[in-house]
Nucleic acid binder design. Structure first.
Length: 275
DNA sequence: CTATCCACCTGGCGGC
DNA sequence: TGCCGCCAGGTGGATA
């Protein structure tokens, strides 16, 4: 599920529910997700007020009064749902409940458990091991032609792998890398350092466009459930190459979309539109 | 330093 | 129907 647009959609959906609210209780139903929960995780949060919810790359950061920060990652299959009033019994993969007054629960569900929750604090946040190497957010001004071309110039790897690297750009995943490269007319197999100026410029622009379009599609589907089905769904119609192998490219109408394997992961592209 | 590989999990799907 | 292998939106940490 979650690349930048999905995580940001979750953030926007949860923020009005969480902001300024006191955590009445926190229920943790296992010892670990991808990593163990910190000791006394629930205890340290109980009774505290949430200041706000921010995002860094694909991490959600829940800022707590007193300086604690909950670092949350949704992994591949993580999902946060807002429940009101008649709270259903937790299912097999409902690992954490954040409970608020008036029978409101924010429930974390994650079948594969590649997600994580841990604790840091405002002072150490920037240098936290999960966050300190993360590159510029593509929706911020820190991400631009200068910063990207500099990052790519000394890379000895493909542009596909480079864009997946969170140190270079924060928040892209397997879907949006393929989509961004397609819209920029760049083959995913090109070496990162081989891109010419105009190609890097196109990439910067198209990465923003793709993410913003996905964000707008996600935002429009929000009600009191954040991403209720845990799948892309709402944006699938806007994907031009991802998951469309063997389909005719609807831009050039000349070639079928190809699927290849790069460092163990699928890449989709159009051999006519991209070179 | 950088690039690559593996491990961590469950569920869904196609093929036999 | 059932079983098996393969695939899936991520990434920290080990290894070379």
């Amino acid at each position: 599920m979650p690349e930048l647009p999905e995580v940001e959609t979750v953030r926007r959906g949860l923020e009005p529910i969480l902001e300024g609210q006191k955590l009445v209780s926190v229920i943790v139903r296992r010892d670990d997700l991808r990593i163990p929960f910190p000791k006394n995780f629930a205890k340290r949060l109980t009774g505290k007020k949430i200041i706000n919810l921010t995002r860094r790359a694909k991490y959600l950061l829940m800022h707590i009064e007193g300086g604690d920060v909950v670092i949350i990652h949704l992994g591949m299959s993580g999902n946060m749902k807002i429940l009101k009033n008649n709270i259903p019994q937790p299912g097999k993969h409902d690992h954490v409940d954040f409970c608020f007054i008036n029978n409101i629960v924010v429930r974390y569900n994650d079948p594969r458990r590649f997600g994580l929750m841990t604790l840091s604090n405002e002072k150490k946040l920037q240098t936290h091991r999960f966050l300190k190497f993360i590159g510029p957010d593509p929706l911020s001004n820190n991400f631009n032609y200068i910063s990207l071309s500099k990052s790519l110039s000394h890379r000895k790897t493909t542009i596909k792998a480079a864009l997946l690297d969170q140190k270079i750009i924060a928040g892209l995943g397997n879907i949006y890398v393929s989509e961004s490269l397609f819209r920029s007319g760049i083959l995913p197999t090109r070496m990162a350092r081989s891109l010419i100026n105009v190609e890097v410029e196109k990439l910067v622009a198209n990465i923003r466009v793709v993410l913003i379009e996905a964000l707008e599609a996600g935002g429009s589907s929000l009600n009191d459930h954040v991403k209720p089905d845990g799948k892309l769904g709402y944006f699938q119609n806007n994907l031009k190459v991802y998951g469309r192998d063997n389909e005719m490219c609807n831009v050039c109408l000349e070639s079928k979309i190809k699927k290849i394997r790069q460092s163990g992961r699928s890449t989709f592209f159009c051999p006519v539109c991209q070179n």
